[in-house]
Amino acid sequence: MSRTVFCRKYQKEMEGLAMPPMPGPKGQEIYDNVSRQAWEEWQNQQTMLINEKHLSMMDPNNRKYLQAQMERFFNNEPFDKAEGYVPPEK
């Protein structure tokens, strides 16, 4: 059986991550408070932001920017989205 967490994005009990997504306290916080679904949605948003804005993960300012956008995403606050992205039609 998978573990559940009270997801801070969706404000309900949902399936949690199998392991912390990154080392340290931030990874543990995400593991404890973010659902697998919310994390996967963030990963998609993050990839679009990195590609659209040509962010380098070697640049500490770019990493800080993504960290701030991630917090906004999980807190249901306005966050930057990739401009011009149109989801594929199903």
Rank of each mutant, 00 (worst) to 15 (best):
M1P: 12
M1V: 03
S2H: 10
T4W: 15
T4F: 15
T4K: 14
F6K: 10
F6D: 03
F6E: 01
C7E: 06
C7A: 01
C7D: 03
C7R: 06
R8P: 07
Y10L: 14
Y10I: 02
Y10N: 12
K12S: 07
K12M: 07
K12G: 02
M14S: 08
M14I: 11
M14Q: 09
G16E: 03
G16K: 06
G16V: 14
L17T: 07
L17A: 12
L17Y: 03
M19T: 12
M19V: 09
P20D: 04
P21H: 09
P21F: 06
M22N: 07
P23Y: 00
G24M: 02
G24L: 01
P25K: 14
P25Y: 04
P25G: 12
K26I: 11
K26F: 02
K26P: 11
G27V: 01
Q28H: 10
E29M: 10
I30A: 09
Y31H: 14
N33R: 15
V34D: 03
S35D: 11
S35Q: 05
R36Q: 13
R36S: 15
Q37S: 15
A38Y: 07
A38T: 03
A38G: 06
W39A: 15
W39Y: 10
W39K: 09
E40R: 13
E41P: 09
E41S: 14
N44G: 14
N44E: 12
Q45A: 14
Q45I: 14
Q46T: 11
M48G: 13
M48S: 11
M48C: 13
L49F: 01
L49N: 02
L49W: 06
N51A: 15
N51H: 15
E52V: 03
E52C: 08
E52D: 13
K53N: 09
K53M: 13
H54V: 15
L55N: 01
L55A: 01
S56A: 03
M57F: 00
M58S: 10
M58W: 08
M58P: 07
D59K: 05
D59Y: 07
D59A: 04
D59C: 12
P60I: 04
P60A: 02
P60K: 03
P60R: 02
N62Q: 03
N62Y: 04
R63D: 03
K64N: 15
K64C: 08
Y65V: 02
Y65C: 05
Y65S: 00
Y65N: 05
A68E: 12
A68W: 00
Q69F: 01
Q69K: 04
Q69H: 08
M70K: 06
M70A: 05
E71K: 09
E71T: 10
E71C: 06
R72C: 07
R72S: 05
F73Y: 04
F74Q: 01
F74A: 05
F74T: 00
F74G: 02
N75Q: 12
N75P: 04
N75Y: 13
N75E: 11
N75V: 02
N75M: 13
N76V: 00
N76P: 00
E77R: 10
E77H: 11
P78F: 08
P78E: 05
P78S: 05
P78R: 10
D80E: 05
D80R: 04
D80I: 02
D80Y: 01
K81G: 10
A82Q: 00
E83A: 15
E83H: 06
E83M: 08
Y85G: 07
Y85K: 14
Y85W: 13
V86H: 07
P88M: 01
P88Q: 07
P88H: 04
K90C: 03
K90V: 13
